[in-house]
């Protein structure tokens, strides 16, 4: 039943952005040392950030894929959040501390769509941190690979 609901949510999101407000599943918790913290950003708030799409390969899939979402640094700038690192936490309690410079050195995307399809929780959704791996040779390294957090739901800015 929940699966079905999630699937429906995805379908409606693809069909029209007007129905996106009806999806409580899409929310990102941001905590840390900034004025509005803690804050939970819903779909409407995230839609305000300009959408970006990057093409890249990943270490866990074949071929290249297009990822659509928003830039991590746009989100941090939007919140006025500053610090040295961001701890990203996934639904399965996987957590990684990512240096802040990554987001300013590279166009690190918080993807909501892969190849035009919304990411589902039963796959890599709702959010997947994607590095532009193919554009920078230095990013083709296992020390960057573990920063590709999927099923992201919380960021802690330190």
């Amino acid at each position: 039943m929940f699966i079905k609901v999630a699937a429906l949510a995805c379908g409606s999101m693809l069909a029209s952005s007007a129905t996106s407000a009806d999806q409580p599943a899409l929310s990102l918790h941001v905590t840390g040392q900034f004025a509005k913290a803690p804050v939970t950003l819903d779909r409407a708030a995230l839609d305000d950030l300009s959408a970006v799409t990057i093409e890249t390969s990943t270490v866990i899939t074949d071929g290249t894929h297009s990822f659509t979402g928003f830039l991590m640094r746009d989100l941090l700038d939007h919140l006025g959040a500053t610090g040295t690192s961001v701890t990203a936490v996934a639904l399965n309690d996987y957590s990684v501390e990512i240096p802040m410079v990554d987001f300013y050195d590279y166009d690190v995307v918080v993807a909501t769509h892969m190849d035009g399809k919304a990411l589902r929780r039963a796959d890599k959704g709702p959010f997947w941190i994607v590095y532009p791996r193919d554009d920078h040779r230095v990013l083709q390294d296992i020390r960057f690979d573990y920063r590709w957090v999927w099923q992201l739901y919380q960021l802690d800015v330190q």
Binding site: F2, I3, L91, R120, K124
Partner: peptide, 9 residues
């Protein structure tokens, strides 16, 4: 549902 989705993923 969450745990099931995580296993599916």
């Amino acid at each position: 549902s969450l745990r099931f989705d995580l296993l599916v993923s």
